[in-house]
Design a protein around this nucleic acid. Structure first.
Lengths: 201, 201
DNA sequence: GACAAAATATTGACACTGTCCAGATTGAGG
DNA sequence: CCTCAATCTGGACAGTGTCAATATTTTGTC
């Protein structure tokens, strides 16, 4: 068979669907997302994805899980490029990584945190989401010298920090925070530092 | 004609569609929302809504605008039932109203702040959203003694407060803030007060 | 009151969607 | 080699949004 474009078995269809799915999601947003479109993109029949992800919810859950991995990486990357070792600076770095991811992959972000269209009970998704939360918890642990899981005040710090950065990011995406939207990136970061410092400063 | 169930002209179809639309939205969520379903609910042909709202985006924009009105009312209601006149207490009351609305109409909240499926440029929507924002701005003006529109620090206060309460509400809805989710209402309110106080306290 | 114009609602069509089901193709283990 | 399970295809079905053509009613004007 010289034409090897369409072997009956794709080889690694699951990975290909995830990759294409992410692209489609970024292009069309959650509402325009279509399982058939993803299959078409990969060059496979419209009901092939079902064998790997069940239904649309399943694929979106897998994408969300992948999103949480990238999300964690974004926070870690900002911390890695942070010269300081001050716990406060490291927390802020996480916040900036949070924002980086949000702005880089808005549709994915909305999927992870807002959508009714994803199976929230997916085990892999729960694990990766928990890992991202844990990262923030450890930031606070380093800052307060006590684990949030053992100290209610520290847990309140986690919730406050999380709410602040998440609200900031969400409002930025929603298109309703006009004053901040119009800033360029450096100005926005400076503003965010100023705002974020209130909660832990 | 003795049977007056289906007069050709509905009378006030626009209002009926809005009402049914809100119910459908609450029941099925944004992703499951269907224009035909709303029309069916009202007992009218599947393309009748087009004459009043154009397309789905149009109806959803109108619903979102209506949502912002209720949203503002929820904040005002909490303030009205607030015995204190302390600006700080009034701000917190707004925050609690913010939460009230979020928990009472989660789908509407997501529509107003998160959805790609609503026409963000709808004039009525812009006005009502602005009015809600203004309410918060006045809370800060009262607290700081200067208008946020004329003072950058006060505007930063607005953004910080808004981000905090919005993040708290969003995370609560997202189902990812487990520690707070499991609280009953009084405990959650107490916790929110504690968290929210950090940003303006 | 009569009649044209505009607003309102219906019906049918089209392309698209997700999901189910029966069948075709392939790879792996006995 | 041969069976069996995994994988993939193609067709079917009900549902969707939106468009265009048509029907009905109200409104404004003479």
């Amino acid at each position: 068979m010289t034409l090897e474009k369409h072997p009956y078995h794709h080889g690694d269809l699951r990975a290909a669907l995830l990759k294409a799915g992410e692209a489609v999601l970024a292009e069309t947003g959650i509402e325009g997302f279509s399982l058939r479109r993803v299959a078409r993109e990969v060059g496979v029949s419209h009901s092939a994805p079902a064998h790997h992800f069940g239904d649309t919810q399943g694929l979106l859950a897998a994408l969300a899980a992948e999103g949480f991995r990238q999300f964690l990486e974004a926070m870690q990357a900002r911390q890695a490029s942070c010269s300081s070792n001050d716990p406060q600076d490291l927390l802020i770095a996480s916040g900036l990584g949070y924002l980086d991811f949000t702005l880089a992959a808005p549709a994915l972000f909305k999927l992870m945190f807002g959508s009714d269209r994803v199976d929230v009970c997916d085990p892999d998704l729960e694990v990766t989401a928990e890992a991202a939360f844990d990262h923030l918890a450890q930031d606070i642990a380093r800052l307060r010298g006590v684990s949030p899981y053992e100290d209610a005040d520290a847990m309140a710090d986690v919730m406050a920090s999380w709410s602040m950065v998440h609200g900031f990011a969400s409002l930025l995406l929603s298109g309703r925070m006009h004053p901040v939207q119009d800033m360029d990136q450096p100005a926005r970061e400076a503003f965010f530092r100023q705002v974020f410092a209130r909660v832990t400063g």
